[in-house]
């Protein structure tokens, strides 16, 4: 039986939005799917060797549960983003949720294919040396080639 296929487009580079593509990709791979993830625009940040700049901001994110209510004027103060990120990472760890680094490693071990958008790399003048080695570079047409045969295709 030919395996099922899933294609994801990862477009966001914040801590909260980094989880869905890595969770879905690692799970689908565990279920026997062939998986490709196309990282474009801010999603490319998730391919950096160092993921410590992937942060979460309470600003303009009114749905984010906060330990204490915090006015927007306070949320915009310097250091708030780092503080929110530290607190969120602590919570994730306490609840047994894997780190992004762990999930990404699980994906790679399970042969999930990562494709980085070449156009975005050129646009933001990213240095490919800052990305992990297990990445292929391609464009929309590369993505279509695989996406066209998939059972699940999501834009995140």
């Amino acid at each position: 039986m030919e395996s099922k296929k899933m294609a994801l487009i990862a477009t966001k580079g914040t801590l909260d939005m980094a989880y869905p593509p890595f969770i879905l990709a690692s799970t689908a791979a565990a279920l026997g799917y062939e998986v490709q993830v196309f990282f474009t625009f801010y999603g490319l940040q998730l391919l950096r060797k160092d993921l410590s700049d992937v942060k979460i901001s309470p600003l303009a994110n009114p749905a984010m549960p906060m330990p204490v209510p915090m006015p927007v004027m306070v949320q915009m103060l310097p250091g708030m983003e780092s503080m929110a990120t530290t607190m969120m990472k602590h919570k994730l760890k306490a609840k047994g949720v894997a780190s992004l680094e762990q999930l990404r490693e699980i994906c790679l071990e399970a042969d999930v294919k990562f494709i980085a958008c070449q156009m975005t790399v050129d646009l933001f003048e990213f240095d490919k040396d800052e990305f992990i080695a297990d990445v292929e570079y391609g464009g929309a047409s590369t993505f279509m080639g695989f996406a066209g045969q998939t059972d699940i295709c999501l834009f995140i």
Partner: peptide, 15 residues
Amino acid sequence: RGLSCPLPIVKTKKS
């Protein structure tokens, strides 16, 4: 024990 989604499934597959 203590692991959240998707780790139990991923580790089951590995085991």
